[in-house]
Write a protein that binds this DNA or RNA. Structure first.
Lengths: 183, 183
DNA sequence: CACGCCATGTAAAAAGTTACATGATTGC
DNA sequence: GCAATCATGTAACTTTTTACATGGCGTG
């Protein structure tokens, strides 16, 4: 049982999903490719933590809907309560480039930061869209801990929050770049 | 040539380091274990991107100081200028738990957030310490793009900035938890 | 007509972690 | 006396990515 297994269980605890849907749901806090998700779901099924149901569809591929079992729920609970917090992992190629920023000319440096800002502006707009539609769909209920949407809502709000700050930091850094002209 | 290779070159472009030192330097933007770093350095040496020099020490183990070559510098430059920005990776077990927060009782939920805040408070204090000592050591020079310290300084300021915001988000989330009593 | 979305899977390769191995010095 | 710091390396394992494989439907 690795972190990804718990991520899958955590999403399935809220709502039964196909592997395809799971991948999209995870994107805000854990990224995984479908080639990792599908075999792992099969493994969770042999362990009786989830069960699947084949849904035949017309006009589009059939899908398998996975549902968490009582055993799956208790395994997830146990992990949430007793597993010590592992440190988060951040890996960011952009920061490798920033580290060596002194070695490039000012225009390149500016270009790199501007590209970064474009990327984050886009992401932020998407996240805000999701947040808005969540608020519209569930209203005030979403802000209560008892709502199954609550955790998902917190995570999207976090992501949007941090993306805004990432942009603010970029602006600050760009400003320092500008001010260091001709020094 | 993977991202880690460029991370190593980026650090070595600023200053020659041992593998041990490289690991510590990377910690703010890319985490890797020594078991990954040492063999990779050897590989970079066979490619003539770095050269090493054995330093014999008394009272402590000998060390190998790696220095970037002209070829290494140009390979790094090329990557910085032409390699499109890969999306950053975030993997955070805490957020898996937050996703399923609706399934635990309020006290457990509070405990999880408080542990998170303790972790980030500590990290933040450390980062701020490093920033302070950097500012003391290099003064205003560090704020100029031409300084080799500049990128490192930006990265530490970013990390501290985002850690503060992570804490702010936790406070906001805890407040929502509190307010959802008895609903 | 090409591309993206839907939808699932396998195989091979690369990247990253854990464990094994050594050993002196400094501080609690 | 025990743990942490300094310092490098290898072997085995797990996790993640990339590539292969299939195929209909809708949109520009």
């Amino acid at each position: 049982m690795n972190s990804l297994s718990y991520a899958l269980l955590s999403i399935l605890a809220r709502k039964s999903c196909s592997g395809y849907e799971l991948q999209q749901m995870m994107d805000a806090f854990w990224q995984a490719k479908h080639s990792q998700i599908y075999p792992l779901l099969a493994k969770l099924e042999t362990k009786k933590l989830v069960i699947s149901q084949l849904i035949e569809q017309s006009g589009r591929p059939d899908k398998k809907i996975y549902t968490i079992t009582a055993l799956g729920k208790s395994v997830l609970q146990e992990w949430i309560l007793n597993q010590p917090q592992a440190a988060p992992i951040h890996r960011d190629e952009f920061l490798i480039k920033v580290y060596a920023i002194w070695s490039v000319d000012k225009d390149t440096a500016k270009r790199l930061f501007e590209e970064r800002m474009n990327l984050y502006s886009e992401k932020l707009a998407e996240r805000e869209q999701v947040i808005k539609s969540m608020e519209q769909e569930w209203g005030e209920e979403i802000k209560r801990m008892s709502s199954k949407q609550f955790g998902r809502y917190l995570i999207y709000r976090r992501r949007a929050w941090l993306d805004r700050e990432e942009l603010a930091w970029c602006k600050w850094a760009l400003d320092m770049l500008e001010r260091s002209v001709g020094c």
